[in-house]
Design a protein around this nucleic acid. Structure first.
Length: 483
RNA sequence: GCACCGUUCGUCUAGGGGUUAGGACACCGCUCUUUCACAGCGGUAACACGGGUUCAAUUCCCGUACGGUGUACCA
């Protein structure tokens, strides 16, 4: 049987980085096995629906390179792929369970349920639907139940959990999991608004969409026994489950907004390369058993297996992600990068943005920054005519030093006299200028950089001079010397 | 509280009955290009604890501790 997996987000907002990883693992697993990766929208909670969320999530996924073979946006022959469009199915299958005695009607109000939980907490017992004391099919009797139903009294359908039975399943990542039936709540399957809960919809859909492997976040592990019971109640074969570990905050709680960016769109906006993010996130909780840390999507597909997914949650290390992005910056094709950087340079109003020139600048400085966008800022003196003002300490280090001024002036005259073209020639010129003024080369380079770029750090100085060219160097030297 | 899941350097991880417990990020140091960086080299740093099993346990088993998740008419 061919592998079929699904990623099933709910349209409640932007795509979370943890969701991206779950989607990625599904995608990698499917592609590794030549299977099918399906997108399903779980929009059964009408109160949390966010307009545009589906489109945003799909585009975030596509940005990262995760695409789907079936889904609301691409079709497929197991649709519809949006749960709200499958509304009738859930009612139908929920009713089948009522008929076969594995689910039942309940009429409790929210207040009654709250009161029940308060009572249970006060008594020190686990909050759980009390089938024998609440208002339901069993306590009310068939007649009263039918009467309430005929009156259209608000009601839900609950799963009748077998109390004296261990529920067991084998998780691909965690192994055998066994839970006693008495620990499992009589979960609501159909809400009073007629919509299914996640639990029912998920099981019905996974069955009819012929899902073979459910790869989802660990937070679903505690409710999996309910799903197993549902499969049993329907007489269906459950899929294989694999619960992947959570992405964590530095304090080891579930990764959330409080500690930094968590939405995929935020990472994109910050300038992360999708390849770097995917590479990094794939390695958070999985690794192929090799020291290599760099994987293209195809290499991930080739090497991904569930048995190498870790059990423990992984703290999301932003610092290491930055490093990885820098590595991609160093490896990417400079001309592609120049093209990508172009709009930023235009926006900043720079004049020296010829593609070939920009590529040279990128080549020169990219090993010093982690983001492509940083280059515009880092090397602004190479893209524009005007310099940012000197810092106070920079200005102070230049002032009141006549020999330095002499050396700078000598360097300027040398530039003026000859048309030098390569970095070594500029270096020779600088050496002679320093020597004739009687200062060390080392003492000359820093001020020279300062005058030419108004920065204390930067790429190789003489390559910088070369890229700047005679005109701009002269202009800057003159501006300083005649201040 | 109860249930489930987890625990190798600060972080991501490799490993696995007998290893100098490996790599990466971060951090520190050194070297180098007569500058700042980059790079290269080196360093600090881990098997949560207690019992078993075994000739031998970080590795297997059981507890404990700690942490996480779940405990909704949310997903």
């Amino acid at each position: 049987m061919s592998v079929r997996v699904r990623f099933a987000p709910s349209p409640t907002g932007f795509l979370h980085i943890g969701s991206l990883r779950t989607a990625l693992y599904n995608y990698l697993f499917a592609k590794h096995h030549g299977g099918t990766c399906i997108l399903r929208i779980e929009d059964t909670d009408r109160t949390r629906f966010v307009e545009g969320a589906i489109e945003e999530q799909i585009s975030s996924l596509a940005w990262a390179g995760v695409t789907f073979d079936e889904g609301p946006h691409v079709g497929g022959n197991h649709g519809p792929y949006t749960q709200s469009e499958r509304f009738d199915m859930y009612r139908e299958y929920g009713m089948k369970l009522v008929v076969n005695g594995t689910a039942y009607y309940a009429f409790d109000t929210a207040e009654e349920l709250d009161a029940m939980r308060v009572r249970q907490q006060a008594a020190g017992i686990a909050p759980k639907y009390d089938r024998s004391a609440m208002r339901n099919q069993y306590t009310l009797g068939e007649q009263e139940t039918q009467r309430l139903l005929s009156e259209n009294a608000p009601h839900v359908i609950r799963l009748k959990v077998p109390l004296h039975q261990d529920v067991r399943f084998s998780d691909e990542i965690r192994g055998e999991v066994i839970v006693n039936g008495r620990e499992i709540d009589d979960q609501i399957l159909l809400k009073s608004d007629g919509f299914p809960t996640y639990h029912l919809a998920n099981v019905v859909d996974d069955h009819f969409m012929e899902i073979t492997h459910v790869i989802r976040a660990e937070e679903w592990l505690p409710s999996t026994p309910k799903h197993i019971i549902l499969y049993q109640a329907f007489g269906w074969e459950p899929p294989t489950f694999a619960h992947v570990p959570l992405l964590l905050n530095p304090d080891r709680s579930k990764m959330s907004k409080r500690h930094g960016d968590v939405m995929v769109r935020d990472f994109a906006k910050k300038g992360f390369f999708p390849e770097a993010l995917v590479n990094f996130v794939a390695l958070c909780g999985w690794n192929p058993g090799s020291d290599n840390e760099f994987y293209s999507m195809q290499e991930l597909i080739d090497t991904f297996t569930l048995d190498r997914v870790n059990k423990a949650g992984a703290v999301f290390d932003y610092q290491k992600l930055n490093w990885m992005n820098g590595e991609y910056l160093k490896r990417r094709d400079v001309h592609d990068l120049a093209r990508e950087l172009h709009p930023v340079l235009v926006e900043r109003g720079y004049t020296y943005i010829d593609p070939a020139y920009v590529a040279e600048v990128i080549e020169l400085v990219r090993e010093r920054v982690a983001f492509l966008g940083d280059i515009a800022e880092f090397a602004d003196y190479l893209f524009g005519d005007t310099l940012e003002p000197l810092t106070e300490t920079g200005a102070a280090s230049l002032s009141g030093n006549d020999t330095l001024t002499t050396a700078l002036d000598t360097f300027r005259q040398g530039l003026d006299a000859a048309s030098l073209a390569d970095a070594d020639a500029f270096k020779g010129l600088a050496q002679r200028a320093a020597e004739s003024a009687g200062i060390k080369m080392g003492a000359f380079m820093k001020p020279l950089r300062l005058v030419l770029t108004h920065r204390e750090v930067g790429a190789d100085l003489f390559r910088t001079v070369q890229l700047l060219g005679h005109t701009r160097c002269l202009a800057r030297l003159n501006a300083y010397l005649s201040r």
